[in-house]
């Protein structure tokens, strides 16, 4: 398992290196007039030249990239060209907020998905139909539409939750729950149906297998068979879907954070890309890329833990 993990981490590092090169050149070649933007729309040529010199924008692109890469390898991702904030500080402080949001959404998606999927597989009837409807709705309704609807109902009309903003749990646990409830719902609702479908399908598949029939014929209680043997065997595919959902939710969070004005990675990613703030964009790409690599590795290791027959190679 250790060899496997090391290999996966090394391939992840290589992936991040390729991602860095592509992102840097795509961004710098696709964004003109960054120095003018930094200096301001009415800035004269002297101010713009000063900015170019200050940030090395007057050097060839390859030289700029090598300079960035050399610093990045020492752990220094530089400072944002626009705000002057150290990139590591900007990204990590906001990563915590986005991870809060993503983990909350994945946990809610997992809990509701497994519950509904198991109900649909074992009871059929209305839970089964609910899962089908949720699955279709989840794919049909964009997250930001749902987010706006939730805000209008629960924040503007009922005033149960704040319409925007984020409260750190260290300031107020109640405030933290309130600030995350609507965004988490907006992100999770679209995914619950998909996970429930996956759990339902896997459970139905396992329920039809010979060993389950044997266990039942030996007189084991139905509940024990379901939760100890069927659900555990069906958990593998569901876990894969949840891992994928984490990545999807991470992308969807970009828009949802914007709608709820949550200071996560989403607004930073959008603003820095639109401005052409290369150091910050590179930081966001590196950190989110590393996060995705780690989550995928974690899902694989969990798969092996839940089902020893899964080979890690």
């Amino acid at each position: 398992m250790i060899t496997y993990s090391v290999k996966r981490l090394l391939s992840g590092a290589a992936l991040l290196a390729v991602l860095s090169v592509i992102t840097f050149f795509a961004l710098r070649l696709g964004t003109q007039g960054v120095a003018q933007q930094i200096a301001g729309q009415s800035a004269g040529p002297e101010a713009v030249a000063l900015i170019e010199e200050r940030y090395g924008l007057d050097r060839p692109l390859a030289q700029q990239f090598l300079s960035w890469a050399a610093s990045a390898l020492t752990g220094d991702l530089g400072r944002s060209w626009f705000t002057g904030q150290p990139v590591t500080e900007a990204v990590l402080s906001r990563l915590a907020v986005t991870v809060n949001l993503a983990v909350g959404s994945v946990a809610l998606t997992g809990a509701l998905g497994v519950l509904l999927g198991a109900l649909a597989a074992t009871r059929r009837g209305w839970p089964d139909r609910l899962v089908q409807v949720l699955s279709v709705l989840g794919q049909a309704v964009p997250g930001f539409v749902l987010a706006v609807g939730l805000v209008l109902l629960f924040a503007v009309q009922l005033r149960w939750f704040p319409a925007t903003g984020y409260t750190d749990p260290s300031d107020s646990v109640g405030g933290w729950i309130r600030s995350l409830t609507l965004p988490v719902l907006a992100l999770a609702v679209g995914s619950v149906g998909g996970v429930a479908q996956q759990v339902r399908g896997s459970m139905l598949d396992v329920l039809r297998r010979d060993h389950v029939r044997t266990l039942r014929s030996r007189g084991l209680p139905r509940r024990r068979v379901l939760y100890r043997y069927v659900l555990r065997n069906a958990a593998g595919p569901a876990l894969s879907v949840l891992g994928l959902q984490f990545v999807i939710i991470l992308s969807a969070a970009v828009v949802v954070e914007q709608v709820f004005s949550i200071p996560g990675l989403g607004p930073v990613a959008l603003t820095s890309t639109a401005r052409g703030d290369a150091p910050l964009v590179m930081g966001v790409v590196l950190v989110t890329g590393a996060l995705v690599v780690l989550v995928n590795l974690l899902v694989d290791l969990l798969q092996a833990f839940l089902n020893p027959k899964v080979r890690l190679s």
């Binding site: 319409a163 925007t164 914007q258 004005s261």
Partner: peptide, 16 residues
């Protein structure tokens, strides 16, 4: 800071 016009309006409607 509200970079998004909808978020700004929601903050106003929500009395924030």
């Amino acid at each position: 800071y509200y970079p998004d016009a909808t978020a700004m309006l929601n903050a106003v409607k929500g009395g924030q």
